[in-house]
């Protein structure tokens, strides 16, 4: 393997890892604050991609306007999701939350199949088929923008969690709900913001990847299982751990996929998840840096 090829694989791994980080961090954010594993998370990624297809492809809006519209819509849907469904399962058995979000996943997926059929669609934007080339490495602009958007979203969220009162309140509610009530934080308001941000992440990933992959109603299903593996490897509820694990999985996928097979890359990811569950159930990055 020459250096140029290795660099290409590194860039590809980084790009896909950053997108995984976006979806997995959103999943982790929702789990961290509600203790609910959101099995419908992949469907919000799918809805983000569907909406991007509609806004960019059908309405002919620009790439950047599409991204903004999808993120705002996904955030609003996240807030509604919390108010209508998730808040009813806060603090209840894990199984009830799992069943409820699995049910929601089926409703959203089959609803999308009914409305749009299973035909894959390609989202065209002004950046489609344009390539960025540097030091022998080529990258479609849409992939590059997806990676850059992930970094920006992640950095902004990280900053907000550390440096703003709302961010601290989100971390506070995830660590001790009773203490949050003690200091006058409204856990419902804070949870609503966290769920809206988590779903906005999924929507952003969908919008960013709509011009990269084909858009279809079942696209979220496989994606979310990979996100689950990432979240478990990084540590359930651990926002930063999820991001680091996502980068790791992206690299494995890129290198093993190119040198052996994508099937083996997936097997390695899920085998790692199993090993983590057996040997270090709190995740590779543990609770020490939890939300």
């Amino acid at each position: 393997m020459d250096a140029e090829f290795a660099l290409q694989l590194l860039v590809n791994g980084l790009t896909i890892g950053l997108i995984y980080a976006l979806v997995a961090s959103g999943l982790s954010l929702v789990f961290g604050i509600l203790n609910i594993v959101n099995f419908a998370h992949g469907e919000f990624y799918m809805l983000g991609a569907m909406l991007a297809y509609f806004v960019a492809g059908t309405l002919g809006m620009s790439y950047w306007v599409t991204v903004v519209v999808v993120v705002l819509a996904a955030g609003a849907i996240g807030a509604l999701l919390y108010d209508i469904l998730l808040q009813r399962f806060e603090g209840s058995n894990v199984e009830r939350g799992v069943l409820a979000t699995l049910g929601l996943s089926m409703v959203l997926q089959n609803g999308a199949i009914f409305l749009f059929s299973t035909t894959p669609r390609l989202t065209r934007t002004e950046y489609s088929f344009k390539i960025w080339e540097f030091a022998g490495v080529t990258l479609p602009l849409t992939r590059l923008f997806a990676a850059v958007l992930s970094v920006i979203a992640f950095a902004l969220t990280w900053w907000a969690l550390q440096a703003t009162q709302t961010g601290r309140a989100i971390r506070g509610v995830s660590q001790n709900r009773e203490a949050a009530l003690m200091v006058g934080i409204d856990p419902k308001r804070v949870s609503r913001i966290a769920v809206a941000a988590g779903i906005a992440f999924a929507g952003l990933a969908g919008a960013a990847l709509a011009p990269v992959y084909s858009v279809h109603p079942t696209m979220g299903f496989a994606f979310v299982f990979k996100a689950f593996a990432i979240v478990i490897i990084g540590g359930l509820g651990n926002f930063q751990g999820a991001a680091l694990a996502a980068l790791l999985v992206g690299m494995v996928e890129s290198f093993v996929g190119a040198l052996a097979s994508l099937v083996i890359a997936d097997a390695i990811t899920f085998a790692t998840m199993l090993l983590v569950l057996l040997m270090r159930p709190e995740g590779l990055f543990g609770r020490g840096v939890r939300l």
């Binding site: 009162q165 601290r168 309140a169 971390r171 506070g172 660590q175 001790n176 009773e178 203490a179 949050a180 003690m182 200091v183 006058g184 934080i185 609770r287 020490g288 939890r290």
Partner: peptide, 18 residues
């Protein structure tokens, strides 16, 4: 009844959330 993974300063800042 505190936020165990946050520093004392961060706990106090959340005490003054409002």
């Amino acid at each position: 009844c505190n936020f165990p993974l946050m520093s004392v300063r961060e706990n106090l800042r959340l005490g003054g959330y409002s």
